[in-house]
Design a protein around this nucleic acid. Structure first.
Length: 309
DNA sequence: AAGACGAAAGTGGTTGA
DNA sequence: TCAACAACTTTCGTCTT
């Protein structure tokens, strides 16, 4: 069995032993809710489904320095060879040099023949880069999304499909899998694509592209979105507490997680005096003030007396 | 004046016949 | 496939700080 990278899941604070850890999904850090210690999450575990990639990568690496990045299809290795058997001084080449160049050209041609999938891969990766830039995604996410697209193109699963929406779907999948709080809406917008198309391509990728792996990306959790609200320190902790309580009384079912999180953050900010306005939160979280109000009314009615602060 | 509140009407997605 | 439905949005007038 191939040993996989271990994700060091932190479940309690090494300093004070508290289990009240707050996870920041953007920076992959935990903050202890009691003593404030910052704990960095270690290596990301891509799970057994990605092992093929790792093996391949390893193999190639040991052979000849394959670029370690998937974000460029050829890492700028393309070269053009002059069709004339002359050197830079336009003098004819020596016979053995001629032979060398003949071989080089032959290989160059062979490479070109492979180009149709290379081309779409290059295009796909360029798209991934652009979309990720628009979304301000960390590098490891771009890398991961690039791996996904590379796999899809290499297995010819994207033939006849719109590469651009596939790139968007790949970025979205990477975000989902790495628990980066980005909505389908945001990704579609960053890709300048219709949400519907990205969504259906996403479903296709998950179903068809990873069929053999019985793979499902994690469902976005409430706490994922908390770091996005921009509330700080104490407020963040209270937001998490409110959300936990909300879940207990089933106030989260059927509601959009964004609305619930935003409302919880609003309440928390009022409680701590940070006092974020509904408008700012609504804008940042891409929901409306009305939704915040509806959620927060429910929350206050049902559980403010339950939450101990 | 800015923020919060809520009513009313409209929209897109889910569910069940 | 269609209708019913709840959540959510948009818009706008009113109240509060």
């Amino acid at each position: 069995m191939e040993e996989k990278t271990l994700k060091v899941r932190v479940d309690c604070c090494p300093e004070c032993g508290s289990e009240n850890l707050i996870r920041d999904y953007e920076s992959r850090e935990y903050v202890c809710g009691d003593c404030g210690l910052v704990i960095k999450e270690m290596e990301y575990d891509r799970g057994p489904e990605w092992r093929a990639f790792d093996l391949e990568q390893k193999e190639k690496r040991s052979r000849g320095g394959e670029p370690l990045t998937y974000t460029l299809h050829d890492k700028g290795l393309t070269t053009s060879i002059s069709p004339f058997d002359r050197d830079t001084y336009r003098k004819p080449l020596k016979p053995e040099q001629k032979e060398t160049f003949y071989r080089l050209r032959k290989w160059q041609k062979r490479m070109r023949l492979l180009d149709s999938s290379e081309r779409s891969l290059a295009f796909a990766l360029a798209q991934v880069n652009q979309i990720s830039n628009n979304l301000l995604l960390p590098k490891y996410v771009v890398e991961y999304a690039s791996q996904i697209l590379t796999k899809l193109v290499k297995e010819r699963l994207l033939r006849g499909r719109d590469i651009k929406s596939a790139a968007a779907a790949g970025v979205y999948l990477a975000c989902r899998d790495l628990e980066i709080p980005r909505t389908l809406d945001e990704v579609a917008e960053a890709a300048n694509e219709e949400k519907r198309r990205v969504g259906s391509t996403y479903r296709f990728i998950v179903q068809e592209g990873f069929k053999e792996l019985d793979y499902k990306p994690p469902v976005p959790s409430h706490s994922m979105y908390v770091s996005k609200t921009g509330v700080s320190g104490l407020t963040e902790g209270i937001t998490h507490k409110i959300l936990r309580a909300a879940k207990e009384v089933k106030l989260t079912l059927g509601r959009s997680p964004i609305g619930t999180v935003t409302a919880a953050a609003y309440i928390a900010s009022v409680l701590t005096g940070e006092r974020l306005t509904q408008r700012d939160l609504a804008e940042k979280m891409r929901c409306t003030e009305v939704t915040i109000r509806n959620r927060y009314k429910e929350l206050v009615e049902r559980l403010m007396f339950i939450v101990e602060l």
